[in-house]
Design a protein around this nucleic acid. Structure first.
Lengths: 209, 209, 209, 209
DNA sequence: CATGAATGAGGCTTCATTCAT
DNA sequence: TATGAATGAAGCCTCATTCAT
C-alpha cells in the first residue's frame, strides 16, 4: 500500500489511520455484511492491529456508523450542487442527475452503502433514521424539485410528484443493489450504461407532456 | 413442564413441523437478518425445542436456504400462470401483473425474502445463483415476454427489452425492500397503492407507441 | 468428585449445577478476588464447561452476587434464632453468640465473603447496600439488643450502645479477614480460640457493671 | 497540544514525578482496587503520559508494591516515636496511641492501604509477607509493649498479651476498612470519634486491674 | 526524559451444534 | 421423535506493555 522506502516496525500516521480503517471497513462490511465482518480483518486490511482500531472508534457499531456517514454525505452535497447550476431543460437536468449520480456512486463506496442500509437498518433504527433524514429525504426532495420544475415549465405532464419521486429513484437504487449483491452471480451481468439509458428513456417518455 | 395427557383441540402432527419451522424462520430471518437470528428463537416460535430443529434441517445454513426456496417458488408459479390466460391489451397485462405481484407478495413472506437476498447473497453464492436462476431470470423473462408481446402488437414502441426489463422490475423490488427495511423508520411511509399507480402510469406512458 | 460408576460424556444434573458452580465460584473469588477469577476456572472447578455457567447465571457479576447472597443469608437466620431462645445472663448470651458465630462462619464460606465485601463493595454499590441492609444492619441490631438487655438487667454498665456495637463486632470481622488474607503469610498464625477467649474476656470485663 | 514555551509558576521538576505517580496510584488503587485501576488513569492523574510511568516503575505490580511500601512505613516510624517519649500512665499511653494513629492514618492514604492489603494479599504473597513483617508485626509489638508496661506497673490486670494484642488492634483496623469500603453505602455512617471513644472506653475498662 | 501510537494476549460472552435420555 | 443440558469455537473488547520519535 504505502510505498515508503523503509518500514519501521510501525509508522506513526495518526492522521491517516481513520481513513484507512474506514476504507477497509467499507470494503468488508459491503463484502460480508455487518455481522460477518470481523474487526480483526478490518484492522488487518488497514495494516494495523486489532487494538489500534479502538484508538479511533468506540467499537464495531461506531465504526459502522462512521462508514455510512463518511461515505454518503459528500455524495449528496455533490449532487445538490449540480442542480443549482443547471440552466437547460428539465429533461436534460434529470438525465444529468441520473448519470452523474451513478458516475459518483460507482466510483465511491456508496453503491455498497445502499446494500448495507437495506440489510442493517432493521438492526440500527437510529442509523436508519439518520439515513432517512439525511439521505433519502434529501434525495427525494431533489427529484421532486426536478419534477416540479419540469411541470411548471410545461416540459413534463402533470403527475403526482410525491408518489412518482420514489418510482423514479427506485431503478437507480436497484442498480446499486444489483451491482453489489446479485449481479456477481448472474450469468449475464447488467450493463449499467444500457440500463441507465433505458431508465432515462422510460422516464423521459413517461413524463413528457 | 406441561405434561398434559391429551393435547387439546388440534393435535400437532409431525408432518407439520417443517412448515412451522420454516414459517418461524422466515419471520425471524426477515425481522433480524441471517446472523442475528438464533436457532433457539426459531425453534421456540415454532413451538419445539432447539434439538428438534436438527431433525428436519441440517443446520442454520440449510434452514436459511430452505426458507428462501420454499417461499419464493410458489409465487413465481402463480405469477406465470396469470400470463398464460391473458387475452387483452399488453398494457392491461402489464398492469395486471404488477398489481397482482404486489398483491401476492405483500400477503406472503416474499417481501422479506427480497431483503434477505440482497443482504446475504454475498455470503451464500450458491443460494444467490439459485435465486438468480429460479427467480430473477424467470421474472425477467416474464417481463421480456410482455414487452415483446406489446411491441409485436404495435402497442408499445420499440425499446431494448433486455435493458428495459430490469428498469421495469426495479420499482417493484424496491417497494418490497422499502416496506421491509427503511420504510418503518420513515416519517412519511410510502403508500403502496399510490406508488404502484404512479409506477404503472410511468411505465405505460413511457412505453406507449 | 462424583463417584458414579460410569461417567457418560456428561451427566444430567440440572438440579446440582447451580450449587456446584456457586461453591466453585466462592472458592475462587475468595482465593483470587473478583477480577482475577476467570469464569473458565470456575466452570472447570465445578466440572462443567465455560458455556454451561451461562445456563445458570447471567454472567460474572450475577454469579458474584449469587455467591454472596447464597452464603450469607442462611448464617444470619441461624444467628438470630439463637437469641430468641436464650434465657441466661447477658454475659453468657454474648459469649454464646460470639463463639457460635465463629463456629458457623468458619465452617461455611462466610469468612471468605467478608473479605470479598471489603474488597469489592466499592465496585458493587448495589451489593454493598444489600450487604449493609441485610447483613451489617441485622448483625449490629443483634449486638445492640444484647447490650441493652445487659444494661436493663444491671449486668452491664451503661455505654453508648450504638457506638459500642461496632467496636464489639470489629474483632470478630477482623478474625475472618485475617484468616482469609493475611494470616496465611504470617509466621505465627492466629489461634482463633485464644483470640476469641481474649475478645470475650475483654468485652465482658469492659462491659461489666 | 499545549506547547507553551515557559511553564507557569512552579516548574514541575523531574524528581517529583515518582511521588506524584505514587500519590495518584494510591488514590486510584484505593478507589477502584488493584485490577480495576488502569495505568493510563494513574498517569493522567499524575499529569504525565502512560509511557512516563514506565520510566519510574517496572509495571503495575511494581507500582502497587511501591505504593504500599511508601505509604505504610512513615506512619509506623511516627507511631513508634510516640511511645518512646511517653512518661504517664499506660492507660494514657494506649489512648494516646489509638487517637494519634487514627489522626495520622485518616489524614494520609493509609486508611486505603488496609483495604488493599486485605483484598490483594492473596495475589501478592511476597507483599503480604512484607506487610506482615514490616507493619503488622511492628504494630503488634507496639501493643504488646504497652500491655506489658501496664501489667508490669500494676495498671492492667494480667492478660494473654499475645492474644489480646490482636483483639485491641482489630477495631482500629476495622474502622479504616469501614471508612473505605462499606461505610459509604451505609444509611448511618460511623462517627469515628464516638467509635474511638467507645473503643478506648471498652479497652481501658476491660484491662484495668 | 517524555510521549502516545501501536500491539496482542487474555477475558467475557454468545450461540450453533451435539447427544444421552 | 423430541428434548434441552452441555459443549467449545469464535468474536468483541480491554489494557498492560513496548518503542520509535
Amino acid at each position: 500500500m504505502s510505498a515508503s522506502a523503509k518500514e519501521p516496525r510501525w509508522e506513526r500516521r495518526k492522521q491517516d489511520r481513520p481513513q484507512e480503517l474506514l476504507a477497509a471497513a467499507l470494503e468488508l462490511f459491503v463484502e460480508r455484511g455487518y455481522a460477518a465482518t470481523r474487526l480483526e480483518d478490518v484492522a488487518t486490511r488497514a495494516g494495523v492491529s486489532k487494538g489500534t482500531l479502538y484508538l479511533y472508534f468506540d467499537g464495531k457499531e461506531s465504526l459502522f456508523k462512521s462508514v455510512v456517514r463518511t461515505n454518503v454525505l459528500p455524495l449528496l452535497d455533490q449532487a445538490e450542487a449540480r442542480i443549482e447550476g443547471h440552466a437547460g431543460s428539465s429533461a436534460e437536468l434529470l438525465r444529468d442527475l441520473i448519470l452523474h449520480w451513478w458516475q459518483s456512486a460507482s466510483h465511491s463506496g456508496v453503491v455498497g452503502i445502499a446494500k448495507l442500509m437495506v440489510a442493517e437498518s432493521g438492526n440500527f433504527p437510529e442509523l436508519a433514521r439518520f439515513y432517512h433524514d439525511e439521505v433519502t429525504a434529501r434525495g427525494d426532495a431533489t427529484v421532486v424539485r426536478v419534477l416540479e420544475r419540469g411541470m411548471a415549465r410545461g416540459e413534463f405532464r402533470r403527475v403526482d410528484a410525491d408518489a412518482m419521486k420514489k418510482v423514479i429513484v427506485a431503478p437507480l437504487i436497484m442498480l446499486m443493489l444489483w451491482e453489489q449483491s446479485l449481479a456477481p452471480c448472474a450469468a449475464t451481468p447488467i450493463d449499467p450504461q444500457a440500463y441507465l439509458e433505458s431508465m432515462i428513456d422510460l422516464c423521459l417518455n413517461g413524463l413528457k407532456a
